[in-house]
Design a binder for these strands. Structure first.
Lengths: 108, 108
DNA sequence: CTTATTAATCGTAATATTGCGATATAAAGA
DNA sequence: TCTTTATATCGCAATATTACGATTAATAAG
C-alpha cells in the first residue's frame, strides 16, 4: 500500500478499503468471476485458465481469502474454493450508504 | 500495480479492477464518504478533515476522478467535488452478476 | 500590477505489490 | 516406504503506490 498512515483510520474504514483493494486487480476479478461461474466449486483449474504461474494464482487466492471474499476447503490434495456470502453484502452496503447527489445539490 | 500482465485481460476486466483499486485505500474511502455526507458539494475542506497534506489529498481526488467515481467543477480558485452517479452502478452490477453458491453447490 | 488563495503537479524517498522459480508441505496411490 | 499430485510459501527482482515539500498555475482581491 506504499506509505499509508494506517493508524489514522477507523478499523471499519480499513476493512472496507482492504476488501476493495483485494478486488483491485484484474487477475483477482477474473478469478472471482470464474469461481462464481461454476456451479460446482473450483480448485487449481484456475491455474490452467489464467496466464499466471501456480505460485501467483495461489497468492491471489490467499488474498481473496484473507479479506473473506472466498472460502477454501481442502479435499485430498486439492483445495476447493467458493464465494463467501458474508462479505459481498458489505460492498453493496457501502454503495447504498452513499448519499447520492441530485443535479440541485451537486456542483454548479 | 506491481508487475501486472495487463495486456492479457479484457478492457472490461481492467476497468472494473481500476474502479475497485481506486476504492482500495482508506483515505479515498474516507474522502468519498465525506463528499457524500455533505448536501452541498465540497472543495478543499477535505484537506482540513484528513491528516494528509494538500498534495496527497489532491492526488487521491484525481485518482477518484480518473476512474469516474467523482466529478470536479472549478469555481473561482476552489474546486467543488461531488459523486459521479454513472460509475457506482457498475459496482452493484458486478456484485449482482456473481452467481452466488448455495450450501449444496459449494465446497464440502 | 501585485499579492493572496486554492489546487495541481513535480521530484524524491519509503514502502508495497506482483510475478516467478525453487522449495516446502501434505495427502494419495503404487 | 517412495513417488506422484496439488497447493502454499520463500526469496528475489521489477515495478507501482504513497506521502510530502516545493513549485507551478490560475483566479480573486487589493
Amino acid at each position: 500500500m506504499g506509505l499509508t498512515k494506517i493508524d489514522t483510520y477507523s478499523s471499519l474504514t480499513l476493512h472496507k478499503a482492504a476488501i476493495f483493494k483485494a478486488l483491485g486487480h484484474p487477475a483477482r476479478i477474473t478469478i472471482l468471476e470464474y469461481i462464481s461461474k461454476q456451479t460446482t466449486c473450483i480448485c487449481g483449474e484456475i491455474v490452467a485458465e489464467l496466464p499466471l504461474s501456480q505460485a501467483s494464482i495461489s497468492r491471489h487466492l490467499s488474498e481473496l481469502k484473507a479479506v473473506g471474499l472466498i472460502k477454501g476447503t481442502i479435499t485430498g490434495t486439492s483445495v476447493c474454493y467458493c464465494l463467501n456470502l458474508e462479505t459481498l453484502p458489505l460492498i453493496i452496503q457501502f454503495i447504498n450508504q452513499l448519499h447520492l447527489p441530485t443535479p440541485q445539490t451537486c456542483c454548479p
